[in-house]
Design a protein around this nucleic acid. Structure first.
Lengths: 141, 141
DNA sequence: CTATGTGCAAAAGTTTTGCGGGTAA
DNA sequence: TTACCCGCAAAACTTTTGCACATAG
């Protein structure tokens, strides 16, 4: 767990760039999310954070992910479960395909889509800031 | 307000097709949504419904929109306000552009996008069931 | 007549916040 | 030093639900 203290985490680099105060708890949350391969909700981030810092509070996790989101470090996603889920903004851009039957979230990518949507927004007089795109599908048999 | 009793509302036609029991309250909710030009949340649907039926309960509105959603009569949307918002499924397909500063929701359309996404899903072995797509942008000056 | 819906109020689930003590810079 | 952060518990907010009565078909 020494890497929690390491300055190498890409999320911590972003935190410094935004001049956010680097507290122990923020390092832990950044560490947990940097190492997540999925799209955890706050409850899950909290559960993973507890393994690193058994005294961290869920209120702090809520405050931290909100802070990160406001600073463009995390995206907040809604896959319809009733809880918000988070993912890093510094990954390659991708979208989600949700299995209508199992609820499983798969990632997919199509560079063309983003360019096209950027154009749609531009035609309406807007610069595209973020994009929420998710597909819901049923497995072909 | 006589139209509330009229069988003409397109949502009521869908309700009959699905063999849903047509109560007074369901007619009111269907009427309110049929006449909505925006994407109201439950609180707002309730507020508008009260003008027609001052005794309707918000619990009934929640139950009704959920029923309608489960029967494919309404889409549930999340524009990030913390409250779910609803819109009819029987309109022309369109997407949303949310103004990053004001929160205003604009509709936009691009038929090409849907076809392309249908193909992306197909390539992963899925039939596209629904599509959630929203853009967040900032007005160009 | 009977299965289903409704209103009310309470419960459940998620997220935010006030406050007193603690800490990064 | 000082402005900001944390943990706790309570509050706020959205949505669901149990129950007794009402009603559509």
């Amino acid at each position: 767990m020494a890497e929690v203290r390491s300055p190498a985490s890409p999320l911590l680099v972003l935190c410094r760039k935004k001049k956010l105060r680097l507290t122990g708890q923020r390092r832990v949350v950044a560490y947990v999310i940097s190492n997540a391969e999925d799209h955890p909700d706050v409850e899950e981030i909290y559960r993973r954070a507890l393994k690193v810092d058994p005294y961290i509070s869920i209120a702090t996790v809520y405050r931290t992910v909100r802070l990160f989101e406001e600073n463009g470090i995390l995206y907040k996603r809604d896959f319809g479960s009733g809880r918000a889920r988070y993912e890093r903004t510094d990954e390659d851009q991708h979208y989600h395909l949700i299995d209508a039957d199992s609820g499983q979230v798969l990632e997919c990518e199509d560079k063309h889509i983003e360019d096209r949507l950027r154009q749609v927004a531009a035609d309406m007089g807007y610069d595209l800031v973020t994009l929420r795109l998710s597909l819901c599908g049923r497995r072909k048999n």
